[in-house]
């Protein structure tokens, strides 16, 4: 993926660049809002990582102008401001995700990669998802593995859908809590892990190949 990072704190920008490069992405870094907007418009990136507090043009304004100008590149806000209202503001101007500082490198990579996957233009809405022999019919709300029917609770269905849409990518616990449950906080207990192991028991237990993997120190990955 080609990622444009707009961040004025050089040390931080360096960190982000290193983390994303290691994960195999091309990164270009710009230090202020004005040039960030210019670069985002003149080149085609797969994702934008935008700090909220930038010299010359604040991140909110940058993304808003970019969207108003027809730009569709998915954008992720980075910010030290982390309460729900700030998040809502960010999403309202057209950002696709919001990550509070400080963050774990795995969290950033997972979220940037999740953004890239969304960027497929003019695609008809997906009605079937498939990862290896695991299949999900979104209309019939039916899940099968190797043609064996698997019964899921509504929330388990939603959780599996999210994992299947991001198959091959690492998704973090926080992402799951945000996207599947729509909550923005860090539970201290392992609530997500337990839901994952219940799901794993339903889709992987009787099979040799384990599709739902735990990625140490990061989260989970569904992969054939």
């Amino acid at each position: 993926m080609r990622v444009l990072v707009i961040e004025d704190d050089l040390e931080h920008a360096d960190f982000i660049e290193k983390v994303l490069c290691e994960a195999g992405h091309d990164v270009e870094t710009v230090e202020d809002g004005d040039s960030g907007l210019v670069r985002a418009r003149e080149d085609s990136f797969d994702a934008l990582v935008v700090d909220r507090m930038l010299p010359r043009k604040p991140g909110l304004q940058l993304v808003e102008e970019f969207r108003n100008g027809g730009g569709t590149t998915p954008a992720l806000f980075l910010s030290a401001l982390s309460d729900v209202n700030n998040r809502v503001e960010g999403l309202k101007v057209g950002a696709d995700d919001y990550l509070a500082k400080p963050f774990a490198p795995e969290e950033l990579v997972a979220r940037v990669e999740a953004l890239g996957r969304r960027q497929i233009q003019g695609e008809p809405p997906v009605t079937k998802l498939k990862v290896g022999e695991l299949e999900m019919d979104l209309l019939a709300r039916k899940v099968t593995r190797a043609d064996q029917r698997i019964d899921l609770q509504p929330r388990e269905f939603k959780l599996l859908e999210f994992l299947m849409r991001h198959a091959g990518q690492t998704v973090t616990r926080t992402m799951l809590l945000e996207k599947v449950w729509n909550y923005h906080f860090d539970p201290q207990t392992n609530v997500i892990d337990v839901h994952i192991s219940r799901l794993r028991a339903k889709i992987d237990k009787e099979f040799d190949q384990q599709l739902l993997q735990t990625v140490r120190g990061a989260g989970y990955c569904l992969q054939a």
């Binding site: 449950w181 539970p187 207990t189 392992n190 609530v191 337990v194 839901h195 192991s197």
Partner: peptide, 14 residues
Amino acid sequence: DEMAELFEPAGEAA
């Protein structure tokens, strides 16, 4: 309801 649903498995696991 949502919180119960979210935490129930963690409780059982404990």
